[in-house]
Design a protein around this nucleic acid. Sequence first.
RNA 1: GGAUGGGUGGCCGAGUGGUCGAAGGCGGCAGUCUUGAAAACUGCUGUACGUGAAAGCGUACCCUGGGUUCGAAUCCCAGCCCAUCCGCCA
Length: 429
Amino acid sequence: MLDRKFILENVAAVKQNCRHRGVAADVDSLVAKESQRLAKLKEVEELNRRANEVSKSIGKAKDEAEREARKEEGRRLRAEKEACQSEHDTLDGAIRELQAAIPNMSHPDVPIGSDDKANLEVRRGTAEVRDFDFPPLDHVDLGSKLDLIDLEGGARTTGHGFYFLRNEAVLLELALQQFIVTKLIGKGFTPTITPDLAQDDILEGIGFNPRGPETQVYSIEGSNLSLVGTAEITLGGLYAGVTVDADQLPIRICGISHCFRTEAGAHGRATRGIYRVHQFTKVEMFAFTLPEQSDQVHQEICDIECEIFNELGVPFRVVDTATGDLGGPAYRKFDLEAWMPGRGEGGSWGEITSTSNCTDYQSRRLKTKFKRKGEKGTHFVHTLNGTAVAAGRAMIAILENNQQADGSVVVPEVLRKWVGKERIEPKSA
RNA sequence: GGAUGGGUGGCCGAGUGGUCGAAGGCGGCAGUCUUGAAAACUGCUGUACGUGAAAGCGUACCCUGGGUUCGAAUCCCAGCCCAUCCGCCA
């Protein structure tokens, strides 16, 4: 969330940013309520001060009668304070809700526009979009012909949006993880395998809404736990409430997790195959940085994503996401979109990774701070996240782009040592 | 899951109802001394919010959340975490 003081001091800019992002947030009401709250807080503190004074004087009271009188005075003040406090808390809760609805500010270079049509292409990968001399199949047909993806089995055991990976698809998924994690260790990331569940307040801190009608999150009944939609949640939550030394930053960490998403409301534009599913595996990068480092580390993460998909030989473009298409916590977001020959009519670009600079929007709620040696006070760190690989989407791109006229699929060179073969052949019936 | 013992400032550790934001030590910072360093000595050394030009002042915080009380680090209840033992399990 944004800092309340910042909102009060930058009302016009905050409102304009909400408009650019297509977010309806009642900034005026927040401003009014916050000034009421501050007045109330003063009252509470004043009453507390007087009550403390009275309490201290009781020990030194001369006689029993005076003691009793003072006690009565203390009781009265505490009751009064209690009433004041609950008024204050009501206001505070209301403000918190309004505050949560206000998105992060936007990087000055972010294209302004209401949806993804305004996204700006900023880079291309080294692999060219291929001209097929045969009609390319999509990953669903390839997956079934090569016996790699069993959507029906997934539906039978679990439901729509779930699938079994089989045979080389399993090796491919494991190979992707090996390839990526090895690379990220070389880039200074600490590798982790994270929990697949997290507490609701961590979800909220990262900017996810765990419960409620529009949630994308699976929650565990009778607990405060939810299945994570991304390891961003657990990696970001790792330092909740922690203050680190400035010279430890930037902290780079990556995590392998399963990701679970209800995809509520997405059925209208339901996508064939494993493009949009309820469970997938992902390697996520995460960084905690000093404020002045975050733009640079954001570029660095984007560069790593490009390097990964260049080495995998997947054609892609990078877009600078428009204001209207940014998530609430993101200050700026770059998406890698791979060319998927089997998607739509004659192929189309499909998102494969995404990296966001969330500045201090997440850390403020998670209370992740840093302290500079020899300086007084603490400040909120900046947080960044980026997909290293979302296994399902990467698999789509690899299968569809690397398919051959004979129905086989060429395994990307960099994955061969883990997959153990150069080519995935159709299974003979 | 059961039993027992614990969770206090950057770290160690004292503190069982008021004078405690918290002894003492370590570490850190500044100074005295010294050619320099060490030692010794002196002082300072948590966070957040509010207020103020500032010094300062006020409020809250001793795992978390409730409760008792005029007053809680201290008493009560619940929870979480850690240690050890037992049970169970991959």
